[in-house]
Design a protein around this nucleic acid. Structure first.
Lengths: 220, 220, 220, 220
DNA sequence: TATGAATGAGAGTTCATTCAT
DNA sequence: GATGAATGAACTCTCATTCAT
């Protein structure tokens, strides 16, 4: 009465998800080094050895986890990118979309915010593989969008810088333990798009931001 | 005939510095958990036990290191804050100043970028003590500046959000492994201050962003 | 196919016993501080880490060992206490019973003689817990017996003092490295019960201490 | 202006005493292994290295300490032994004298109670030397007294057993943390000398303790 | 004599990983 | 597929002892 291949596949899929969930939870509480394989197994309700049946080792588990969770984001991202709206609108949409994703899956959000910075230290020999994941799923699509914005004259900064600028503010907005409030989100996005400094629009001469820039000494 | 107290004090001061340097270096290469106390001692050219003569344990060493390095920054920061210039100018100065500091001391820069996010996991029982260091030396002063900007009508976002916005972009600019180039710095700062989006509304003269690009120097 | 819970339970029980045996042996030879966890593991024929699978740390191992070994004694003690014989007879029986126990398990005997005195220094934060074990399993039952003896007019000293008097002589009799000889035991017990000093006052028949020297056996 | 030999001798004597005092205090609080040489030096108000000027190593310090403190006791003991009083009286005096000594110098008392049991473990290669100190200063004199008692018909137990019996009760009486009260001391001594069991002397039939000893089975 | 900075062997402990069942 | 007992390399930390001054 061995299981059918199909049954086995289903079990395997289920087990992997269980392990991912557990890993995210433990990681959230204790970080990578604090996330003991035993604790992950326990939280997943599985035997300690089983993890090694599905993943080669701890590194492999976590790199798989990166891939797994990035796919969620990528899907959402692609939907937005395909709409033909103005670049600024799409950027705004992306930010708000990731914001709500982070709300719904805070463990995933925390996971990426922290693990992505430690790639070199945590996975030294698989560094480029991991970077490639981020690049392909997330960074490149947004960079393309930025480029489109520059080409259309909508964006006033080189696409590479724009990409970094954008992501840093995005990740800050959804920072675990200090996610910005929903009602602040709009203003945050606007500031990202239009800057920290007031643009006293209705200035008669429309030399709008000179006063901001100008200081006594800058006026020479 | 024993050493004088003064001699001893000098030795201790010197040794602590040696250990700090070594710790920063090893941390840079391997992260907190990878930074073995033995490796730190070796790099400092000292016996392994000596570290424990100066610091209670690994946690204590690293928390002391946070304090030690923050003091560097704090001094620089204070100088800038005291000048009476417009808020935007001071923000610009701060960013450029930290940029050059990070250039000069990349290990310290990396140290803060990574360790500050892991406080809760690395120093769970001394969390608030560490946060207090950041708060007091760095965050609060800039928040005060933001508030001043809001009061003067120079800043168009609540000071708390402004503070986060500012620091995130600051830290991104000096990100280890991907520090932005010196020649890009100006544009980065401008974008932070004036936003991602072009304001060439439909201005007849299109004098739009000259002030953004242009700096006083360029004007003179 | 994994082991059954029952199999696992049996393994664990067996391992704990192995570790206890080994710990007692090493302790006997080198004392608490000399008893390295590695040496205990080696003697138990187990990997060094396994001890930490069964016991939280060295302290925990040794406190568990106290509990484990005290249970042996407690059982023997209870049997004796329940018999309704005169108090002096029961005291005699207890002493002889512990004597033979110590003969059979010299490591346990040594363990208690030494570890019990060092509780405060070895387990400062679990001091009262350990004292409670001794109190409950050994001291209190004998104190109750003493009290009974006093109430019946058989014992001429307050129960608390009697308890201390009794135990000190008991432990001395079974002192490792200098256990008193089997043939001396009778006299030792008699002396404890009837004192160091001869009572041949001036009794004409001098029958007085025959019972002391003589035993029932000698009488028959 | 070097010191005179005499001055040096005085300093040395003083320093040694300082170290002894400190060692006793620290030992009392933390036991042999807990007594760090650094802590002893600190409590003595001396530099850490100085101890090694006066004592070869930790073992040597503590063995010297045994000798030093035993001398105190020996003097007191000798005074008592030389008086020609009955043996029982001298035993009583010794016990009371040690009791008051332990009151006056509790650290010394604790020191001997604990260190003497651990000689084999603490000073394996100097074991016999240490035993010889105890033997010569304390044990042998009392054994001689016991022998005298036996010869005179005052003592009803072989001198070796009597010696052990006596000392164990003596050390129990002055047990640190549970020294018996001054008002109980008399009874304690009496019990040691005359036994735990009541001697209903004036019993008409003078079958005094038969009931105690006698049990149904002992009666055959 | 005296100091305290310095050393390093050695002990306790953790935890990823393996493997018999 | 699954379990959890078992292992041991590797790491942190302690402390007796040394030694330059």
């Amino acid at each position: 009465m061995p299981r059918s291949p199909e049954q086995n596949r289903a079990i395997r899929e289920k087990r992997k998800k269980q392990i991912y969930e557990a890993a995210l939870g433990v990681y959230r509480e204790r970080g990578y080094y604090g996330a003991e394989m035993g604790a992950i197994a326990r939280r997943a309700g599985l035997g300690r050895g089983l993890i090694y049946y599905y993943f080669k080792d701890k590194q492999d588990l976590f790199i798989s986890l990166i891939r797994f969770t990035l796919l969620h984001w990528k899907e959402r991202l692609d939907d937005i990118l395909l709409s033909g709206e103005p670049v600024a609108d799409r950027l705004e949409l992306i930010m708000k979309s990731f914001y709500s994703l982070s709300h719904a899956f805070p463990d995933i959000s925390y996971f990426h915010q922290t693990v992505s910075r430690d790639v070199k230290v945590l996975f030294p020999e698989r560094e480029s593989e991991v970077y490639e994941l981020y690049e392909q799923y997330i960074l490149k699509p947004v960079r393309m969008l930025m480029k489109e914005g520059v080409d259309r004259g909508e964006i006033s900064i080189p696409p590479e810088l724009g990409e970094r600028f954008f992501f840093r503010l995005l990740f800050e907005a959804v920072h675990h333990e200090n996610m910005i409030e929903e009602k602040e989100l709009d203003q945050w996005v606007k500031t990202a798009l239009y800057g920290l400094v007031n643009h006293k629009k209705n200035d008669s001469q429309s030399v709008d931001d000179t006063p901001i820039e100008g200081t006594t000494k800058t006026k020479c």
